[in-house]
Amino acid sequence: MIPASFEYVAAATLGEAFGLLKKHPDAKILAGGHSLIPMMKFRVAQPALLIDINKVPDLAYIKEDAKWLKIGALTRESEFENSALIRDKYHLLADAAKMIADPLVRNMATVGGNLAHADPANDHPAVMLAYDAVVVVSGAKGTREVPITKFFTGPFTPDIAHDEILTEIRIPLRKAGDGGCYLKIERKVGDYATAAVGVFVRLGAKGVCEYAGIGLTNLGLMPIKATAACKVLMGGPLSDAKIREAAQLASEAAEPTSDWRGTEEYKRALVKTLTVRALKQAALRAAA
């Protein structure tokens, strides 16, 4: 399959890319291209111009500062697998990254593209919802910080204006008592999730849960944060009863439809089971 015809520019700087976006209402940004190029082959997307940002310097990094883990939008998924920092301290992200598509795709696919595509079947939206991450969106006039809970405004619709580009993702800096876990059921490597659950907890003194985030993948038209389930967990220790209650609420927060991956009932049951397992694993990691 061959995409429809389009023009191509390899932008050297973000400024050049912003200018091109402003001038061309039908332009799209090409990062890893592993969602966009398949969509173009199927003619689901037919942009008039592709602006390739792969040669823009300084857009791929994983680094910590005093407050955040900062991830450049052009960071490839495989970099998470190779990063000792992510493996040792950001378990939710590490778990999710190795479940995305397959190893070859992960060498090209980017975290920024995964989020900017705003596909509810992508894994990073649920991960970032669980972490309560912040997305940095840049344009000619400067940058905006968008809380992840406000980033997805509709199906496949992120809060990014046409002449803006997602440039960075910020995850709260790891503290003692943090634990996370991502569990995904997929029919085969490379398939979208039948259901997946991302969990992040921050435990304080005596194991009191100060923050809990639960994100759901491919369980509705948009990425879902199971807010009611998170609330139940906060303010006390992660008891078995609380975990069970949260899992029930998470399965109610899911909005699955029956399809070839399973019935609605089956997917809700998966959410419940995966939430219990992920919370228990996250609590273990938080205590370690």
């Binding site: 291209g33 398949p38 792969n54 598509a101 397959d102 070859l104 060498n107 090209m108």
Partner: peptide, 25 residues
């Protein structure tokens, strides 16, 4: 369709699926 990997090449030191890259890239 980015599934099978028969088109795998080494691209700047990493194996990737060449059906999902543009020649211009």
């Amino acid at each position: 369709t980015t599934s099978c990997g028969a088109c795998t090449i080494d691209f700047n030191g990493k194996p990737v699926k060449s059906c999902t890259l543009l020649a211009v890239q």
